[in-house]
Amino acid sequence: MSVRVQNEDFDIAAEMKAITDRRSDIGACVSFTGLVRGEADGKALLDMSLEHYPGMTEAELQRIEAEANERWPLNASRIIHRIGKLEPGAQIVLVITASPHRQAAFEAAQFIMDFLKSDAPFWKKETLASGEAEWVSCREGDATAKNRWQKS
């Protein structure tokens, strides 16, 4: 398990290789990458700035990752989230999950993203091409996506 919050970009292939290299117990490795869209509500985006709560961010990501590892039989997992200024097309977040079988890897990756979206203390501020800057407001759907994982 590992969690990183960083300014620098990440290399998806290198991160996956680091997880799968020199082992033969992994049967499925799933990766999700979130990217900066070039438009916000139909308006052209200049860039996006990501703020976070140092300390709490890492703790929340570790908690989410640990919960995913508790629910699914994962061989390994990794969460990388970038902060600072990001331009359209830039990579924002990477989640990798590895498991003997694909179902667990797929589900765990979705679980991690759904919880990250509603619990990890990151905030995006968008600057439009027009110069206007605005904090992104949360989407109703994010809470719904998280709630579907509730154990009955």
Partner: peptide
């Protein structure tokens, strides 16, 4: 700490 709903990911 006080903050708006989070918007990462």
């Amino acid at each position: 700490a006080f903050f708006p709903p989070v918007t990462g990911g």
